[in-house]
Design a binder for these strands. Structure first.
Lengths: 224, 224
DNA sequence: ATTTAATGATAGTATTACTATCATGCCAAA
DNA sequence: TTTGGCATGATAGTAATACTATCATTAAAT
């Protein structure tokens, strides 16, 4: 069966790779819908089991807990963004163009043609915006980092930092600027939706266009 | 009894203002210590009750749940930062100097002389860095925002946006830049402590000095 | 035809996040 | 000095959560 692209994620993220089985893919598909509906706090495996007409026990065979499931989803998302950046910069030689494309893909990943039938990239992007920072703001961050659970995100930030280096080799804050692009991309959209006094981005059809323009403006001014 | 400064916070944050009573102040004092120790996820009112040798029921008389307590603590912190910015900019006429002072206070608030006997500002800053974004990344954000629960933070961001306007009246992204200063300040310190590949700030004695320098560099380059 | 792996069905347990009720003790007005 | 009221403490109870364990069933692989 054709189910689309498949990413090789760190094995500590799951007990059994959900991309490999029908039930696993159903868990991913429906958890994205349910986490969006309920928020990660009210979401639990009992509700998910009911939704997919399976059992809690079966879900636990894939993920130890909902934190791991969220970590899996965010890792999948960052792998996907990295894939898009690779794809769309491979024919570009000018670092400035590469950086523009990277920013475009970070902001607009979810509007690309979907690659994977059981992942709703738009809903997943909403989860990233609202919940992704919770995956590393935990007491277990150091152990999990040691076990490589944040590698997808760290590699992606490193990739963007490298492109920044191409634009301005003397710039001393490439990692911070790179990670800040991601934070800004998530937060400013969230603020436009829920706390509009905290942003200049208006909540409307063209929010992402405005956001991309703003981030480009910031980044290229800083790198000048 | 002298207990230091007292902020008038939105009444919906609590059932009974903890700043008014001995037990209330003990709740604030010890919750800051315990949230730091355990993280907000493992922290609960039962453990706090044990620590202050009181009961769960008594704590519930002040706060509906730990989310409200955290919201109270973060609001207190932002009120305090605003107080510091007001205090230290009131004799400055040059907007650039005002902005420098604002950035300094945002990054270094916790190193100021403590004003309130029962609040450990250093520990509270650590809570802000690690937990504060969780207070608005919830399903109830819109209702709580409507009830004014985020006013302290929104007013503070507006204040910084106003100073930015003074520096460059034509700059079109003052709110986004202002909120981003806060996000960057929290995240980059957190990354330096836990995910060093995501930042150029080294985790050391002078992290905050470096961070202040970096944020100033970013901000003034953007505003040029 | 038999083994094996995946899933389902069911039950149980410790902890969490409260809510309710009543007792106690202290301060302050009458 | 008594009385009333308010803050806190003590205790109990409940529904939901986050698992863990066990055994049965089914489907695919050899």
């Amino acid at each position: 069966m054709v189910v689309g692209i498949r990413f090789q994620l760190n094995e500590s993220l799951f007990n059994k790779d959900p991309q490999d089985t029908e039930l696993g893919r159903k868990i991913l598909e429906q958890s994205i819908i349910l986490i969006n509906e309920l928020g990660i706090e009210s979401f639990n495996f009992k509700k998910l089991a009911a939704k997919i007409e399976s059992t809690e026990a079966s879900i636990y065979r894939y993920f130890d807990n909902k934190h791991m499931l969220l970590l899996f989803l965010t890792s999948w998302y960052w792998e996907w963004v990295e894939y898009l950046i690779d794809l769309n910069t491979k024919n570009l030689n000018n670092p400035k163009d590469q950086l523009k494309v990277a920013i475009h893909n970070i902001v607009n990943a979810s509007t690309e043609n979907p690659l994977t039938s059981y992942i709703n990239e738009n809903l997943l992007h909403q989860i990233i915006i609202k919940e992704s920072s919770k995956v590393y703001h935990t007491t277990s961050v150091d152990i999990e980092n040691k076990n490589g659970l944040f590698l997808s995100f760290k590699d992606l930030v490193s990739k963007v930092a490298k492109i920044i280096e191409g634009v301005n080799p003397k710039f001393p804050y490439k990692r911070s600027l790179a990670s800040n692009i991601f934070e800004m991309s998530n937060n400013q959209i969230y603020f436009s939706q829920h706390l509009p006094r905290l942003t200049d981005i208006k909540h409307c059809d063209k929010s992402k266009i405005d956001l991309e323009e703003m981030i480009s403006y910031f980044v290229f001014k800083i790198l000048k």
